[in-house]
Computed example of a mutant assay.
Amino acid sequence: MGTLDGKVALVTAGTRGIGRGIAEALLAQGASVVMTGRSPEKGAKALAEIGLTDRTAFLAGDARDKDEVAGWVAGAVERFGRLDILVNNAGGSDGFALVHELSDEAWDNAFTFIVDSAFWATRAALPVMLEQGSGRVVNISSVEGKMGNKAAVSHYISAKHAMNGFTKAVAFEYGQQGITSNAICPGAIETDLMVEVGPSFAAETGVTYEEYKADYAKDAAIGRLNTVEEVGAMAVLLAGPAGGGITGALLNVDGGTSPF
């Protein structure tokens, strides 16, 4: 028996990286999980690797498209009949530069990808959760959502701060209806995405990729990067019965990087 038997979760950007780790952690506790992503090929690969065909599904689409995001919620309910857990994991940024050189496109993309996508998914999920009288919203923020001490990522820092504010607003509005809203703030994790974008970000700040990773590890009290499994464990806590009294929280899984 798992703590999430009979529950249904939607994990955006769930085919790899942090999202995949969360999806697998929820599945291990008995939940059914719908994963989303832009690549049908990566979705099919993830489903095949997980192998739990009766409790998994994949929906393709772009988190920066309002209608596609709302369609994910409808698709999850259509597939499994309910929606108990929403994990807003999609989000990222590009065009890394200092503020005086940062483009409108990079700024807008970060906010659409991180903040708007979470808003659209949450807005669509809340009526379902309200009808059920229960629900869990888990936003994947970042240690950067509490700090502002990295150069060339002001758009990412600002968007994650906004996501944290949205998390608290949802918690306040829906706490008495049995719905919780929390954010997990991971530290640096070497996901597939970090491997892809890390070198270009490192180059923008004048260091090598290895130096970039070592800098994050040095900032952490544990002296290393975090893992997707550690984030998945926190998501399971927030999604399950033990998380019922936790809402409006910004919970660090950052190895002691953030001072608060």
Rank of each mutant, 00 (worst) to 15 (best):
V197Y: 14
G198Q: 01
A217S: 11
E230P: 03
N226S: 15
G240Y: 06
A214C: 12
A203S: 14
A214Q: 13
G232I: 01
A239Q: 09
E229Y: 03
E210F: 08
R224N: 12
E196W: 09
Y212A: 04
G206Y: 04
A235R: 10
L237Y: 14
Y209L: 02
K213P: 10
A221C: 08
E210A: 10
S200D: 09
G232P: 01
G240H: 05
S200R: 07
A221W: 00
G223T: 09
L238F: 07
L193I: 11
T208D: 05
K213L: 14
A214G: 14
V195W: 09
V197H: 12
T208N: 02
V197G: 10
V236I: 10
L237N: 05
G223D: 07
T227A: 03
T227H: 06
A221Q: 11
T205Q: 12
A214L: 10
Y216W: 15
M194L: 11
G223F: 00
K218S: 15
K213H: 13
A235Q: 11
G198M: 04
E196L: 12
G198H: 03
A217Q: 12
K213Q: 15
V195T: 14
A214Y: 08
I222F: 15
G223K: 00
A217I: 02
P199F: 11
V228I: 14
A221G: 08
N226D: 15
E204T: 13
A220G: 03
E204Y: 10
A220T: 15
L225G: 12
E211G: 06
A239L: 04
A203M: 07
M194H: 07
L238V: 06
E230A: 02
E230M: 06
E229A: 15
G206A: 09
L225N: 11
A217W: 09
V207Y: 04
A203R: 07
V228K: 14
A202C: 06
D215G: 15
Y212S: 06
V231P: 10
A203G: 09
A203N: 11
M194R: 13
A220H: 08
A233Q: 07
A202L: 05
V195G: 15
D219W: 08
Y209M: 06
P199D: 11
G240C: 01
A217T: 05
T208S: 12
A239G: 08
A217N: 04
A203W: 06
D215T: 10
V228Q: 13
Y216S: 05
A217D: 14
A203T: 13
Y212Q: 02
T208R: 01
A203K: 09
T205A: 02
P199N: 07
K218V: 02
Y212K: 00
A220N: 14
G232E: 12
E204I: 02
A239N: 02
D219P: 10
G206R: 05
E211N: 03
V236H: 01
A214H: 10
G223S: 02
L193Y: 15
V207Q: 12
I222G: 11
L193F: 13
A233V: 10
E204H: 03
S200K: 09
D219I: 08
E230H: 04
G232F: 01
D215R: 12
V228D: 09
Y212W: 11
A235G: 09
E204S: 14
L237I: 09
T205I: 11
F201E: 11
A202T: 00
A235M: 05
F201Q: 13
L225S: 06
V207A: 00
N226V: 07
A221Y: 01
E211P: 10
E204C: 07
M234T: 06
Y216I: 01
G198C: 01
G223Y: 04
A235N: 10
